[in-house]
Amino acid sequence: MLYLIPTPIGNLEDITLRALRLLQEVDFILAEDTRKSGVLLKHYQISKPLQSYHLHNEHQVVERVVQKIAQGQKAALITDAGTPAISDPGFLLVRACVEAGIEVQCLAGATAFVPALVQSALPSDRFVFEGFLPPKKGRQTRLGQILQQSYTTVLYESPHRLLKTLQQLIDLGANNRQIAVCRELSKLHEETFRGNIEEALAHFQAKDSIKGEIVLVLGAEKKIRNSQQELEEDDFEA
């Protein structure tokens, strides 16, 4: 059995009772960063063998892990924060386990984009999750495509690229587009800025420094959203 276990994105209390029980029961735990995960496990007095599993070693680790599980061991996959395989390593291992006939279960739990979307005050009936933008090549093209979408879009961003992203959106003519910038979710200094992109840029430019993981929730342009709704209504009537 492979369990995918979400871990808190900030506040250590944001973990389920089932997650804590299974972390106590499994034979070993795969962690994106064993040092960061060690803090969480120590807090809850969980002592299990930890193995590193991250973006740079997953191809080498997958086969060995699948063999251990196939031999009867139970494993848990956790990441630094949130749900495994959501903008974090995990897909390759899940696919390999399924192909090997190993049962995979993902627990319900913390992930950053859900609270950001819900508290953004932007339409959440339908949305697109884009994850992280390309750091360099293809970034401007991707942003241009996102601005053509008819639904609310959720993005992950690093603090040192936030101003660049906001400026690029303005350069693409989206300065009046509504956005929510959610920073340090569930932590002591949690902040959610709501306004248009131009206002968001001014707000964060005024800060001495920008810290913490960031979720951007970008609203669709009204005429694009309305056009999509009209098409869907026509399809329904037909």
Rank of each mutant, 00 (worst) to 15 (best):
P134L: 12
F204A: 06
L143T: 05
Q205Y: 04
S209M: 13
K223A: 06
K164F: 01
V26A: 02
L77R: 04
E58C: 01
V39D: 10
E233T: 08
V118F: 06
I146F: 07
T16G: 10
S186M: 11
K207S: 09
V114C: 08
L166E: 03
G72T: 07
F28S: 01
G38H: 14
T111H: 04
I179C: 01
V94P: 02
L185M: 15
V98Y: 05
Q178K: 15
L22Q: 01
I197Q: 04
T79R: 01
E198G: 05
V154P: 01
L23K: 03
Q51Y: 12
G109N: 11
G138L: 08
I179Y: 03
V94D: 04
V217Q: 07
S227D: 07
Q119A: 11
I210W: 11
E190I: 12
Q119R: 15
D27T: 04
A76I: 01
G101L: 12
L117W: 09
D33R: 05
I102W: 04
R194S: 03
R126A: 04
G144W: 08
A238Y: 13
S158Q: 06
A19E: 09
L143Y: 09
G195Q: 11
L166Q: 08
K137M: 01
L22M: 08
I146Y: 07
R95E: 11
R18H: 07
L155G: 01
H203Q: 14
A220W: 10
N176R: 15
